[in-house]
Amino acid sequence: MTNERIWTLCKIAVVILIILTFTPLVTPSGIHKPAFMGLPYTLWVGILEAFLLVGITWLATIVHSGRHEE
């Protein structure tokens, strides 16, 4: 897979995660279960999402076309 394609996939993945943030999958109204390691639902899913976003950012820095500039 080319770097350009991975970069496009990174952008798509981030957009999907943003959309999911506002759906009941991440932010169900008034629901805090199932918990994970004691953390209420939206918090642990939110932490997972934050790590995913930072992970995608890391991947994006590897494949970004401008990384060798300057």
Binding site: I18, A50, L53, T57
Partner: peptide, 12 residues
Amino acid sequence: IFLMISDAVMVF
């Protein structure tokens, strides 16, 4: 969600 997810998207 208000701050961390917004910050993570900002970083990207």
